[in-house]
Write a protein that binds this DNA or RNA. Structure first.
Length: 1018
RNA sequence: GGGCGCGUAGCUCAGUUGGCUAGAGCGCUUCCCUUACAAGGAAGAAGUCACAGGUUCGAGUCCUGUCGCGCCCA
């Protein structure tokens, strides 16, 4: 073995051995004891960053641990197509490199370009995961857009549509004019911007007299003047004193000339310059109402049945082609085709020149921005597909137990049998648990305030919505629906809401026979008053690629397209397919062996930023489609920031590629360090530094990873030393470890470490795990046991060899989940040297990855041995300390004296040779008379030790004086405590008696120290 | 505006239901290249636990408020 651990010479070979042995493969048959984690699929937008490294390291630690405890483990890997994110990066790249836009390509050609990008990064991502040591079941690797996942998406969409939970809605959406797509509420980032309030005068159609004054104008205040083109009312609070004069009057909208009413609405904030409420300070009492361009105004518009006038094109330019019909001929005509911000300036300028601009005030406020393009989002009127999340559904899977409870979850408006209810209930029941617990609140409050989920996206990259539509009359529709061979599709009309639905009785078959009540409703609607009324009919196709003989979906599709039905151009929100990930990867809607064996999975491990976007939706869909929660535990880990607390990102140049860390420090070092930094806090900081890698490249990495590298190197060398000394190792049955203090001690520490490491793993306390293992490996095994073993082996003892081998064996097992490569490598070496080792002298498993987790033996945890060894260790340290303080050369042997009758004294005498060797002393006198004027003194538990021949009396006086002071402080504090009757009365008995013992020991120490001081003075 | 978290040694962080003289790693100081490891060993210095109140026999820990920082949601 090399003198230093060189990870690059070990990692790939070890990984290859694992894969060749099939060590990561789950047994689909499962068994009683299974453990499953589904990977949070990384986006194929870019290579993995350090956050992914952390996320996947933690999962791998748990998977490896569970595998060693004998569970049939499945770690399901894969990637996410990440709709808008991926399309955006590819668009940007093509624009930069070729100067072409998406619209310069045919749809399929452009998708092929994105597909190529995906292929490249998927390969790269999987290579990164492998380099980190992730033991995923690679043969099951999925992609959210592969055939298996696509089938699940189609089935899920179909079922939701059939159950009436998907509807077409005209709503104000968060529109991103740059990417021209709708964003979910979660995808809007609120940024604080310095803006203005513009005070603009709107002339009254007829002047109004208020308490003797004639009013010609009213003044509205707005942060977005450009939307005034779409104003359809001015609102004021009914309690405003001016309201009685003005409500019902008309205003002539400047620029446009539109006559709009003044209406009363309580939403309007009354002006109050003294108010704490900023809005009141800025308010004039008059609110322009633009239902098509503001969510609040939309609400007001609904309340007052106001017209809705959309004045913008999808790209954010002013346009009269999308619902605005009085622009032509007005002064507003000049604004057409201007960008919204250009128009803002032009309008303000117009008001200024017309003397209608009363004031402009600075105003700081929050503005929603697209998380993709970072441009301000535009509230925009649009037709979108929605999922109704608070609507009761009969489609709730029958697997869900019927407990006969109230239809609404207590304290909420959420029906138990709605999607939101299905997601919330398991949390309230305790079936889904969060670690740390506080994140349950994030999940809960999000669900409680949930709005319907807009699922259509104006993108090309994603699962295309399986709906075809066309306009036709009721009569045409009726004739069509009666044809048996087309009843395998769902048909709905979406005027206002979906008002007609036909659902086959058996949701899984395509037969037409025996349709349910909705079918009757459909026929009734056909026969309703006006058979010639035209409306849009939506047809949802279940799986156009299915080969079922009854279905002939391809034929139906052909028929639809031949008959003028057009496929919806949009794709689904990327989170739709992510929400299905735990079931789609296992083959749902088929009831596969995998689902039977591994669903629900055991753990979801992710960062807090996607608790709402992803975690909650997986619970929703898992419950809805499979009738059970997707996982019982959600572990939320910290997010990694750079050294100054900033988010790591490419644009800031402070990101770290895990592969660069692996090159600079090794994969195990990275894993160990990341685990040791993983506490329950929200964020961890990682100082970033440029470094020259072994291959000569300069890359970002972090000195933090030295912790892990040093740890690995220490383990490597300790193992190397141990194995160099295992020749002629006696069998365990031949040795008597109970008879030697250091043996008893290290075996006790070993078992305590197993106990603590196991507890840390079970509680997801990764930093505790790393700490416990670090302390044992370095502080106990290397610093003390190995040093002692050297001396004992040199003295001819062989027993320490067997203990060394056993400790190393267990240590490797304990360390394997966290540093798998190095431990596997050492394990194979150890197997060559001593294949049979430890209690039982049994042969070790061939590969560590498949070895059994060591179970702590409580009987081996020996408090007396640990206490005795602590005395021994303190004595050695005491001598070394004196030696250092008095500048005694390490090679100068010194003499020591103490009372052998005391407990520590006996321990030292029992291990005299070892002690003399470790402290490099000679015990010359075991008498209590040994205090001399040239002696240095230290005490352990009240027993004085005298180090003789220390000549620097002044240094010793300073040292002892300081020590006496410290001891006296301790004595005073405890005496004060013990003098307090309330303490004696209230504190637990063991606390009081512990204080008494401490006081006695301190008093003995104080006596020793002061006596020594006196003899020094002589 | 609502919610969550953080503030402990020069730096990065532990500190579990309140109870030893508040810990670790890095950095720093002194000594040592002792045949496992200088990516190492031995010893050491270093903290008004953000601030102010409160509860308690006892507070880094619990409560209230203030200041500073970060994140999520509206």
């Amino acid at each position: 073995m090399e003198k230093n651990y060189e990870p690059e010479q070990v990692e790939s070979a070890v990984y290859q051995r694992w894969t060749e042995a099939g060590a990561f493969a789950a047994d689909a048959a499962g068994g009683a004891n299974t453990y499953c984690i589904v990977i949070p699929p990384p986006n194929v937008t870019a290579p993995l960053h350090l956050g992914h490294a952390l996320n996947n390291t933690l999962q791998d630690i748990l998977i490896r641990y569970k595998r060693m405890t004998g569970a049939d483990t499945l770690w399901m890997p894969g990637c996410d197509h990440a709709g808008i994110a991926t399309q955006t990066v590819v668009e940007k790249r093509i624009l930069a490199q070729e100067g072409k836009r998406r619209t310069d390509f045919a749809r399929d050609d452009f998708i092929a370009r994105i597909q190529a990008w995906k292929d490249q990064y998927e390969v790269q991502i999987i290579a990164q995961l492998k380099a980190m040591g992730c033991s995923c079941d690679w043969d099951r690797t999925r992609f959210t857009m592969d055939d298996v996942c696509a089938k699940a998406v189609r089935e899920a969409f179909f079922k939701l549509f059939a159950d009436g939970l998907i509807y077409r809605g005209k709503r104000l959406v968060n529109w991103d004019p740059a990417t021209q797509t709708v964003l979910a509420d979660d995808e809007v980032e609120h940024e604080t911007v310095q803006g203005h309030f513009w005070y603009m005068k709107y002339p009254l159609a007829e002047s109004v007299e208020i308490e003797g004054k004639t009013i010609e104008h009213i003044t509205i205040a707005t942060t977005r003047p450009e939307t005034m083109l779409g104003d359809t009312a001015v609102a004021m609070n009914p309690t405003d004193p001016r309201a009685k004069y003005l409500i019902g009057k008309k205003v002539r909208l400047p620029l446009v000339g539109r006559i709009i009413p003044i209406i009363a609405d309580e939403h309007v904030v009354l002006p109050d310059p003294e108010s704490d409420d900023e809005k009141a300070r800025f308010s004039t009492g008059f609110l322009k109402v633009t239902p098509a361009h503001d969510p609040d105004d939309w609400q007001i518009g609904q309340r007052h049945d106001l017209p809705i006038i959309n004045v913008m094109a999808p790209d954010g330019t002013i346009s009269d082609k999308f619902g605005w019909d009085d622009a032509a001929g007005s002064d507003a005509e000049q604004l057409l085709e201007m960008d919204r911000f250009e128009a803002r300036e032009a309008i303000v300028e117009w008001f200024r020149t017309e003397n209608l601009l009363e004031d402009v005030r600075e105003y700081t406020h929050e503005v929603g921005h697209s998380y993709r393009s970072h441009v301000p989002i535009e509230p925009y009127l649009s037709d979108q597909w929605y999922i109704a999340v608070k609507k009761s559904s009969t489609g709730v899977s029958p697997v869900q137990p019927d407990t006969g409870e109230t239809p609404v979850l207590q304290g909420t408006d959420i029906p138990v049998d709605s999607l939101a209810g299905l997601a919330l209930k398991p949390l309230l029941d305790g079936r889904v648990k969060f670690t740390p617990e506080r994140y349950a609140k994030t999940y809960q409050s999000w669900l409680e305030n949930l709005r319907d989920w807009p699922i259509s996206r104006q993108l090309w990259w994603g699962h295309r919505i399986p709906i075809w539509s066309r306009q036709m009359s009721r009569a045409e529709w009726g004739a069509w629906i009666e044809k048996d061979h087309h009843a395998s599709v769902l048909i709905g009309s979406a005027r206002n809401d979906i008002s007609v639905r036909v659902v086959c009785e058996d949701g899984r078959s395509y037969g037409v026979a025996g349709c349910n009540d909705d079918y009757e409703t459909a026929l009734e609607l056909r026969d309703a008053t006006d058979p010639d009324e035209k409306m849009t009919w939506y047809v949802c196709l279940r799986d156009e690629n299915a080969e079922e003989p009854m279905a002939k979906p391809a034929m139906i599709r052909q028929w639809l397209e031949d008959n003028g039905f057009i496929r919806d151009p949009d794709v689904l929100d990327t989170w739709f397919s992510s929400a299905l990930w735990p079931i789609s990867t296992m083959g749902w809607p088929e009831e596969t062996d995998l689902l039977k064996a591994f669903y629900p999975t055991d753990l979801l491990c992710t960062a807090r930023e996607i608790i709402t976007l992803w975690v909650s939706r997986m619970v929703m869909f898992g419950q809805y489609f499979r009738g059970d929660i997707p996982f019982s535990q959600v572990y939320i880990h910290a997010m990694i920031q750079d050294g100054s607390g900033r988010k790591m990102s490419k644009s800031l140049g402070n990101g770290i590629d895990p592969l660069d860390i692996i090159a600079s420090h090794g994969a195990d070092a990275m894993r160990f360090t990341l685990a040791s930094m993983t506490t329950e806090t929200q964020d961890v900081r990682m100082p970033v530094e440029e470094m020259t890698l072994p291959d000569g490249r300069v890359a970002n990495t972090s000195p933090k990873f030295d912790i892990g590298r040093n740890f690995c190197n220490k383990l490597w060398n300790a193992s190397r030393f141990a194995m160099m000394n295992l020749e002629a190792m006696p069998a365990w049955s031949e040795i008597h470890p109970r008879e030697n203090l250091s043996d008893r001690w290290i075996i006790s520490r070993l078992n305590a470490t197993v106990r603590d490491a196991t507890a840390a793993l079970d509680a997801f306390r990764f930093n505790d795990l790393a700490d416990v293992l670090y302390r044992f490996m370095w502080g106990d095994f290397c610093d003390w046991y190995l040093e002692i073993a050297k001396i004992r082996i040199n003295a001819g003892e062989s027993a320490p060899k067997a203990v060394l081998a056993h400790c190393l064996d267990v240590l490797l097992r304990l360390l394997h989940p966290i540093v798998p490569f190095i431990t596997e490598r050492i394990w194979s070496q150890l197997n060559e040297v001593v294949p049979n080792r430890g209690p039982g002298d049994s042969p070790a498993e061939e590969m560590l990855i498949r070895a059994q987790w060591h179970h702590a033996d409580a009987a081996m945890i020996d408090a007396a041995a640990e206490a005795d060894f602590e005395f021994y260790r303190e004595a050695v340290r005491g001598v070394r300390n004196l030696r250092a303080e008095h500048n005694v050369p390490p090679k100068q042997k010194i003499e020591i004296s103490f009372s052998p009758e005391s407990n520590p004294g006996e321990i030292i005498m029992d291990n005299r040779a070892l002690f003399e060797s470790q402290a490099f002393v000679e015990v010359i006198s075991a008498g209590s008379e040994a205090s001399r004027s040239d002696a240095g003194t230290f005490t352990i538990g009240g027993t004085p030790f005298y180090v003789l021949g220390v000549i620097d009396t002044e240094a010793e006086r300073v040292r002892l004086t300081k020590q006496a002071e410290t001891i006296q402080n301790g004595i005073t504090a405890i005496e004060k405590k013990l003098a307090n009757e309330k303490f004696l009365a209230n504190a637990p008995a063991e606390v009081v008696s512990r204080e008494r013992e401490r006081l006695n020991a301190l008093k003995r120490d104080f006596e020793t120290v002061t006596n020594s001081l006196e003899s020094l003075i002589k």
